[in-house]
Amino acid sequence: MTQHTLEPKLWVDNYADYLFNFAVSRVSDGEVAKDLVSETFLAGLKSAKNYKGDAAERTWLIAILKRKVIDHYRKTNSKKGKAEVRMNYSSASDAEGDWLEEQVADPFSMLENSAIENKELGLAIQDCISKLPKKQAQVFTMKTIQGVSTEDICNELDINPSNLWVMIHRARTGLMGCLNKNWF
């Protein structure tokens, strides 16, 4: 088995987006997710000497992030005193008739499944993006995910539009190949 080493200096550049997507899909709040990610990096730095090198850097960071997410839910629950679960049978509590039948899950609903699938898809895409050459990944992220206009990207990165489209093209081709391997 190969030995992995930690390189904290590169963490933010390499893993911030991946961890952020992971966190956002679990806490569904951008600000909280951001805090969790930076806490994860700090915790990782603090316990870097405990890193045995068995797992890849990112796997190790994800493991820390998972604990942070759990801690986050513990904290928010303890603020309220304790976890409280309230159930209402239905909003129209005085409704008569088939109230039990109405509560049964719709067996044909694909919503739940597709939500889970989309989470995984997000991580798969992020994974593939991080495998692209750095410049392509940057352009693709700015264009597709952050929705920055062509003009702004060209100004910021000091390239011309045809350059940009070539990079987008390569990035998309690379992504498609990667997703074909890992997703479909």
């Binding site: 550049d13 911030a16 987006d17 951001k34 990096f41 700090l42 603090k46 997000g122 992220t141 995910i145």
Partner: peptide, 27 residues
């Protein structure tokens, strides 16, 4: 359509820079 469906998020460069600053303070 896959990219849209996945609802990808990413941190802006500014946010990453802030994160790095924070990081430096601790390291």
């Amino acid at each position: 359509s896959l990219c849209e469906k996945a609802k990808l998020y990413s941190l802006s460069d500014k946010e990453k820079l802030e994160m790095k600053e924070q990081f430096k303070g601790q390291a």
